[in-house]
């Protein structure tokens, strides 16, 4: 498993894909941070994290599309499957490599918050009266940590989805397209709940359906973390989503052996 993990990590950086991923993600998040906070004149990072989430629709397939599709096409999976490694070990090695890239990107993007803290520091220093009134001016560190954590959990679940789709495909392009579609569907699901008809009533009138959508949606789970609350239910939700798709990936390979 470690060998496969190291191989995947190396392959992200031998090929342009690792640099492309990190480059796009960092540029996008920096611009987004700039527009949603500094230019918008607020310390609130809520909209930054919400919009950042949508970039995963494109970026996560970039990380996962090669994982299995490429191996299948080049027949190198034969090497891995005849090596003394379990299928679970192989799947986890690849999954954690993609996850490492993802988490690395997220952590690097945290430099985006430095300007906020610098500005807030300057502002607090300037206005003595504000400090005297005990008002806090600046980004809420708890919210930021919670949101970053939630992003990582969400990413972990979506990467598992992408991994599974890559295992089904022999062509990385089709793996990418299907992953984009699937992840977009998952991320945009709770928009259905927000749709209103002309009278301002929810388009989905039947409340239990909205409840289920809300419960299933990967985005609505984000809420509590965004407020800086550590939400065990959501943690469990994301973890089980990742588990289910990784389990399915292992099954795909088991099935293929027996095919």
């Amino acid at each position: 498993m470690q060998a496969i993990y190291r191989k995947e990590m190396r392959s992200y950086f031998i090929n342009p894909i690792g640099y492309v991923y990190l480059g796009i993600f960092l540029v996008f998040s920096a611009l987004l941070c700039c527009y949603t906070t500094i230019i918008a004149g607020t310390y609130s990072t809520t909209s930054y994290f919400t919009y950042l989430m949508f970039s995963f629709v494109i970026l996560i397939p970039l990380l996962t599309m090669r994982l299995f599709a490429e191996e299948r096409k080049l027949r190198t999976e034969q090497l891995l499957l005849t090596a003394p490694v379990t299928i679970t070990g192989m799947v986890l090695g690849k999954y954690f490599a993609a996850l490492t890239m993802f988490v690395g990107g997220i952590l690097l993007s945290c430099i985006n918050f430095i300007p906020l803290y610098v500005i807030s520091f300057a502002e607090n220093a300037d206005t003595e009266n504000v400090r005297a009134s005990l008002m806090h001016i600046g980004p809420v560190t708890g919210q930021i940590i919670g949101s970053v954590l939630a992003l990582i959990l969400l990413g972990a679940a979506l990467i598992a989805v992408g991994t599974f789709i890559s295992a089904l495909s022999e062509n990385q392009l089709s793996a990418a397209v299907i992953s984009v579609g699937t992840i977009a569907g998952m991320v945009l699901l709770n928009i259905l709940n927000l749709l209103k008809d002309s009278d301002g009533q929810p388009l989905i009138a039947f409340y239990p359906v909205r409840l289920v959508i809300d419960w299933v949606s990967v985005v609505s789970r984000f809420g509590a973390f965004g407020n800086g609350v550590f939400d065990y239910a959501s943690l469990l939700y994301y973890a089980s989503l990742a588990f289910v798709f990784l389990f399915l990936t292992v099954r795909v390979y088991e099935k293929r052996r027996w095919g």
């Binding site: 060998a3 191989k7 392959s11 090497l79 003394p84």
Partner: peptide, 28 residues
């Protein structure tokens, strides 16, 4: 078992050195 399939399972973007080292690790 050491196995050479019909189509050698080579990672074309690795050097021979990297490839053999990877196999060394893979096979523990």
């Amino acid at each position: 078992i050491g196995y050479l399939p019909e189509q050698p399972p080579l990672y074309l973007d690795m050097t021979v050195e990297e490839y053999l080292n990877f196999n060394y690790e893979l096979k523990g």
